[in-house]
């Protein structure tokens, strides 16, 4: 889940009677699972919410390159290095693809990126955690991409056409990343030294809870969820998605021979789901407010890249302009 706590601007849902004819027509289309396309009429709140959600998602792809970039120069083998590089390249591609989907809503990529750099736009809280050992590259692929997929598989059916199509494409690549991530951990657990196994457990200990936080707050504390669900921008609640993730991940965790840092994690025969402990929500909100371990570094790195690259982009524009003039003169 790369977008958390997306503002919808709605305090409560409008009833059909309160809606304008246009709004009613729109809602009926959404209810009938007809995709909304860029040229269709849409409520302003829907458009703004989508811009926020897609831009958060795009920012997450781009900021998400940094914790991996932290290890791409230190990957242990040629194979792992190439895999990680390919994953990072995919993420840059996802970012581009999502910004394009966002621009179909009339938003401007540069403006949205500027909001990110000013601290006004969010990205997934998970990328504010440091990657401290090589096994983090496995754990990020397995847990972080895994959590993202749970959300994005559902978002393939989201009501906005361009976003839905972006999700279909992105999901394919992320499933691949997730399997690769898991394989990194599995290889180390099966054939690694004691030190390598300890690395794997350490990575899981640090990333487990932050991965669960990726799904956002409990639904009863998320006023925006209802509106997003009605618009079918969101298709399942935060808690439902989190439970799906836990249920699919715990058997994989056991297969690895590792443990989760949660004493309350256990199978519940009655519900047919895993029970798990309470998330440290204070930490979650702290990280969202900018007080995670790496918030400052992540934004600083991104801002520097774009600021220091200004002359590069200006040169490209100036050169293109000259070429155009030459072509006209010829």
């Amino acid at each position: 889940m790369y977008a958390q706590l997306v503002e919808t601007g709605a305090k409560r849902l409008k009833t059909k009677e309160e809606m304008s004819p246009e709004e009613r027509d729109f809602q009926e289309k959404v209810d009938a699972e007809t995709k909304i396309e860029p040229k269709n009429w849409m409520p302003e709140g829907y458009r703004k919410t989508l811009i926020r959600q897609i831009s958060q998602h795009a920012h997450s792809e781009v900021v998400g390159m940094l914790p991996e970039g932290n290890w791409v120069t230190r990957a242990p083998t040629l194979k792992r290095k190439l895999q990680l590089m390919a994953k990072i390249q995919d993420e840059a591609g996802h970012g581009l693809y999502l910004y394009s989907a966002m621009e179909t809503l009339g938003a401007d990529r540069d403006e949205e990126i500027e909001k990110l750099h000013q601290g006004k736009a969010k990205y997934s809280s998970i990328f504010n955690y440091p990657t401290l050992n090589w096994a983090d590259m496995g754990a990020v692929g397995w847990l972080v991409d895994g959590a993202a997929i749970v959300n994005q598989v559902v978002l393939q059916r989201t009501s906005y056409g361009p976003y839905s199509r972006a999700m279909i494409r992105i999901c394919k690549e992320e499933s691949f990343h997730q399997r690769q991530g898991y394989q990194i951990l599995l290889d180390m657990m099966r054939e690694g030294t004691e030190e390598q196994k300890a690395m794997v457990q350490d990575a899981i200990n640090r990333l487990w809870w932050p991965a669960l936080m990726m799904f956002g707050p409990h639904d009863d504390e998320s006023p925006n969820s209802q509106q997003s669900m009605a618009w079918k921008i969101k298709r399942k609640s935060n808690d439902e998605l989190r439970q799906m993730f836990i249920d699919q991940t715990v058997p994989q965790l056991e297969f690895l021979g590792c443990t989760a840092p949660d004493p309350d994690l256990k199978w519940n025969e009655e519900t047919g789901h895993y029970d798990f402990g309470e998330i440290n929500w204070q930490e979650f909100y702290d990280v969202l407010k900018g007080n995670g371990p790496c918030n400052r570094e992540r934004i600083k790195t991104r801002k520097n890249a774009i600021d220091e690259g200004a002359w590069v982009r200006e040169a490209a524009v100036a050169y293109a302009e000259k070429q155009k003039q030459r072509a006209q003169a010829a």
Partner: peptide, 17 residues
């Protein structure tokens, strides 16, 4: 690889990698 996340534009990020 050292330039990961530090390119002057997202398109360049892709191209460099």
């Amino acid at each position: 690889c050292e330039l990961c996340g530090k390119a002057p534009a997202l398109e360049e990020e892709m191209a460099l990698m």
